Simulated assay, not measured.
Amino acid sequence: MSVTNKLYIVTGAAADSDIGLAICKKLDECGARLILVGRREQALNETLNQLEGSSHVVSPFDLCNLQDIAAWVKELVKQHGAIDGLVHSASYQGYSPLRSISPKQINQYLDINFSAAVMLTAAVSKAKQFNPGASLVFIGSAAGQRGLKARTLYAASKAALTSMVQSAALELAAKKIRVNCVAPAVVSGKKAEQQFATLGEEQSQKLKDAHPLGLSKPQDVANSVYFLLSDLSRNTTGVTLAVDGGFLAG
């Protein structure tokens, strides 16, 4: 069941990422070794300073450079050894009303939320890049399973991610690599507060009321990620686990 001494790549690991930071802290508490990934080295070092373990490393990288992902992962393995899993928490978020959507916006959402996930999966699953029993976990969204007004691009990118997880799970089962997704709805924290400020008080309250159990906390998402990485879920693959306070049940 333990993830102790296992090596995981965690994207979106900057200290100002509510979910990414919570995932790093959870895995650190459980004894894992982490490769912290994000565009900003200083923000990654801030995360590193909040962790107890001494074997974590920082690897600044812009996942929009899709063509470089394979070589970058290969170099990480060369330096730190084969990996036991991946958590792709990096995400591009925001609103995209149809009246103002541009081709550039489409690429912004798809490059990080979907295309980078595909390239990471392909890179990590190559021979000698992973250890037996590796587990890949992607942070999706309830928006990928239920349309949301003015969030067309975000919802579409997360729906594509869910579909990718199902297909990759089938293809990689022969290698004993598990592939799963965790799909939160609104998660409490700085990003949620920014969203509520954009929506205004009335719409914000409606959105909160759409979560019968209340908003999830970043730690709730991190606990589910731990479950999917560990042997507790050793026979689970190709699933999208909702951590949404009942949002999708409404």
Rank of each mutant, 00 (worst) to 15 (best):
L21K: 10
C24Q: 06
K25G: 05
L27W: 07
E29Q: 15
I35H: 09
V37I: 15
G38H: 04
A43I: 00
L44A: 07
E46K: 10
L48T: 07
Q50C: 10
Q50T: 11
V58G: 04
L63C: 03
Q67G: 05
I69V: 12
A70Y: 00
A70M: 00
A71V: 08
K74Y: 01
H80Y: 15
G81F: 12
G81L: 11
A82W: 02
V87R: 11
H88Q: 10
S91E: 11
Y92P: 00
Q93D: 02
G94I: 05
S96R: 02
S96A: 08
P97K: 01
I101W: 02
P103D: 02
Q105A: 06
Q105C: 00
I106L: 13
I106S: 03
N107M: 12
N107Q: 13
Q108P: 00
Y109K: 02
S115G: 00
A117T: 08
A117I: 01
V118Y: 15
M119Y: 14
M119I: 08
M119W: 12
T121W: 03
A122F: 11
S125A: 15
K126L: 13
S135K: 07
S135T: 12
L136Q: 08
L136V: 11
I139L: 15
G140I: 07
G140V: 08
A142F: 03
A143N: 13
A150G: 03
R151K: 14
